[in-house]
């Protein structure tokens, strides 16, 4: 009668236990300690989350610091490559489970991209957009695995008057390193601009910023003897160049927004989970783990989706402009 596959009595007992654990960690945790003046038992003593925006170096190779986020991203890469290597090693017409998983992943992402770009450009966008999505998503999900952020040497740091003990984890959520998000943002930016220059054509692409063709038009007006039209055209030209500069700036700002959107969201998520775990050690943080899973998918989707959309915009700049003019 129960959907959970166990008897209803067990469900009741389990929910009572879970509720009791939540209540206990609430009352005996830091909140209870403050409210009722109880000493926090050592089991529930969890160190306050220590926010360190730069990733912590774990060891050095020559002059190069290997940080925990870097290790974490290596783990992501190794995991993904191993998984998909074994999934696609022996491709069969009738897929096994692994192969079906790989096909589902690739097919799902590919179909989504094709729906947005159309058949013509789907293959151009697919590899980079899919890689961004898979990479960001896997980083976000791995960050929720218990080893991440908890396994590492304990160090003492001095903050002003008092000392605090912190864990320097061997593995830290890769998305919480600004260098990682910046690297993907740079690649996304380069990809978008490359598409603009190569597919739309250099002249077309630059013209979409500065409207040089309008300038040429106003000069032909001058040769026809329409001085007034030439002057107004010239004035518009200066405006256009100014708008073009703004446009370039907005393209550059995309790097920053890409970087800090992912970095901010992921760091905030990590801190949120840390704080919740510190306040209510049991049960309640699970809810936030669910949230973070969702945010991981969402951020990966946003990053990949924006790359796709900006790329499409730079592919057909004149259509864009035309759409704006009419």
């Amino acid at each position: 009668m129960s959907k959970l596959g166990c008897s209803s009595r067990l469900v009741v007992i389990l929910s009572i236990v879970i509720l009791a654990l939540a209540l206990a960690s609430f009352t005996f945790g830091p909140i209870g300690a403050k409210l009722f003046g109880i000493q926090v038992p050592s089991v529930l003593q969890i160190s306050k989350p220590h926010v360190s925006l730069p990733s912590e170096p774990i060891f050095h190779v020559g002059g190069f610091k290997i940080t925990n986020t870097l290790i974490s991203s290596w783990v992501t890469i190794i995991l993904l490559c191993t998984l998909f290597y074994f999934a696609t090693r022996k491709m069969k017409e009738v897929p096994g489970r692994f192969q079906a998983f790989a096909e589902l992943t690739v097919g799902g992402i590919y179909n989504t991209i094709r729906d947005i770009t159309g058949e013509k450009y789907a293959r151009t966008f697919f590899p980079i957009v899919a890689t961004i999505f898979i990479y960001v998503f896997t980083n976000a999900i791995l960050a929720l695995v218990p080893l991440w952020g908890t396994w590492g040497p304990i160090e003492e740091i001095h903050e002003g008057s008092h000392t605090a003990t912190i864990i320097v984890p061997f593995l830290r959520a890769a998305n919480t390193d600004v260098n990682l998000t910046l690297s993907i943002a740079l690649i996304s930016f380069c990809f978008i601009e490359f598409l603009g220059f190569s597919k739309a054509g250099t002249a077309n692409y630059l013209d979409s910023f500065f409207h040089f063709r309008a300038l040429g038009k106003s000069f032909t007006e001058l040769f026809k003897g329409h001085v007034k039209a030439f002057i107004s055209g010239l004035a518009f030209c200066f405006i256009n160049i100014y708008v073009g500069l703004l446009e370039i700036l907005s393209h550059l700002i995309r790097i920053v927004s890409f970087t800090f959107r992912l970095f901010g969201n992921m760091t905030a998520g990590e801190i949120l989970i840390g704080v919740m775990t510190f306040l209510v050690a049991l049960v309640i943080p699970s809810i936030f783990y669910g949230f973070e899973t969702l945010f991981g998918i969402l951020q990966a989707l946003i990053f990949a989706g924006l790359t796709l959309v900006f790329g499409l915009m730079s592919l057909a700049p004149h259509q864009e402009e035309g759409a704006e003019e009419h």
């Binding site: 730069p54 610091k65 870097l70 991203s73 890469i77 490559c81 696609t88 790989a102 990682l180 740079l186």
Partner: peptide
């Protein structure tokens, strides 16, 4: 924590992942 060395390392990471996934996942599938 922006650090050009790390940035380069992450760029390489991404490109490596991009290459590997293209080779073992996207192309065959």
């Amino acid at each position: 924590g922006i650090n050009w060395q790390l940035l380069v390392a992450f760029l390489i990471n991404f490109l490596v992942l991009f290459g590997l996934l293209t080779a073992i996942l996207y192309k065959p599938v």
